[in-house]
Simulated scan of single mutants.
Amino acid sequence: MVCRKGVLSVSSATASLHGFRTRSELDRYLEASKIRERAIEMSNDVAGTYNDLKLRIFSKYPDLFPEEVFNMETFRWSFGILFSRLVRLPSMCGKVALVPWADMLNHSCEVETYLDYDKSSKGIVFTTDRQYQPGEQVFISYGKKSNGELLLSYGFVPEEGTNPSDSAELSLSLEKSDKCYKEKLEALRKHGLSASHCFPLQVTGWPVQMMAYAYLVVSPPSMLRQFDELAAAASSKTGARQDIRFPELDGQALRFILDNCEASIAKYSKFLQESGSMDLDFTSPKQLNRRLFLKQLAVNLCYSERRILHRTQYILRRRLRDMRTDELRAPRIFDGFWNLFK
């Protein structure tokens, strides 16, 4: 492996599940985070792959694939080991490869370094974005991933506030009591969305698609003709108009997002409050240490994601307050003009 100074890029690895072995552990430790749903989906994919291999190969050749070795637990472990060590090579159209020793490089959110195939040396080259002193630890970027993605893929959570790519997912949903529920759902499905959808929030803001989704949710029956346009804007599809604005719905849409944001914050706060007494009933030191480790990861993730939600909450409250201030100011200005003509 060659180390040289160069220009930025990002290496990435295919996601896998790290540390969490069972569905009950996912439910227990990732209860508050929306990353739990993705983790469950990944876990089901791994289980499905194993069951398919067991049916087609393992069960037919038990002498070659004894169950004490080729079982679900070892398969999950090997799957995690494999996919957490795959490196995507930009110069080879994103092909993935296993690179010996490369997995020993630790991740840092502050660097933009990458691994790639170098045709001249016919080897994998490690490109750094800065000079390193002898004996200094060299870091690499595992990609622009949120803390939740880093947890599932590599089994760690960066320190709160240190990951500029961190995000927290906020779920928004249509209400079944909506008079136009059927029409709105039809519009969403037409553009690849569902009655419930998650949007990534960052400290710097949220995607414009979320506001379009909120507009659709709070829109009255009189806007039936705009449902399709709003659903398209919420879908991130290429060509869809993204700068949709309905000032008359701004207040309702922002309040709708704020209510969901605060409900999500409450879940995080509840988990953090209850986490102190969690996992104190294990007598096995090995089991206890492992559970405490998973709990600490979950707590760290909760703090980082709740921080983003709190920032979103602050922005939403400020916007709503400014809107109310403007509404109160308008009659005063009108009264001022009226008094001039008395």
Results as ranks from 00 to 15, higher is better:
Ser173Glu: 14
Ala232Asn: 09
Asn163Gly: 09
Leu185Ile: 08
Val203Gln: 11
Pro134Thr: 11
Met223Phe: 13
Ala212Asp: 12
Ala233Met: 05
Gly135Lys: 02
Ser236Arg: 11
Leu249Val: 12
Phe227Tyr: 15
Leu174Tyr: 02
Tyr215Trp: 06
Tyr132Trp: 04
Ser173Gly: 08
Leu185Asn: 14
Val218Gly: 08
Pro220Trp: 13
Phe199Gln: 10
Thr128Ile: 13
Thr238Phe: 00
Glu160Asn: 07
Glu183Pro: 11
Ala232Gln: 13
Asn163Lys: 05
Ser171His: 05
Leu150Cys: 07
Gly239His: 03
Gly155Ala: 09
Ala231Asn: 06
Lys176Ser: 13
Cys180Val: 07
Gln131Ile: 11
Gly251Lys: 02
Leu230Asn: 08
Ala240Glu: 07
Pro220Lys: 15
Thr204Trp: 05
Ser171Thr: 14
Thr162Tyr: 11
Ile140Ser: 14
Ser222Leu: 08
Asn147Trp: 00
Leu152His: 12
Ala195Leu: 00
Trp206Leu: 00
Pro164Tyr: 02
Gln131Arg: 13
Ala195Gly: 13
Ala233Leu: 03
Gly155Pro: 14
Lys144Asn: 12
Tyr154Pro: 08
Ser222Gly: 01
Ala195Thr: 01
Glu136Cys: 10
Gly135Thr: 05
Ile140Gly: 12
Leu224Glu: 12
Gln202Asn: 09
Val157Asp: 06
Leu224Cys: 06
Arg225Leu: 06
Asp178Tyr: 04
Ala187Cys: 08
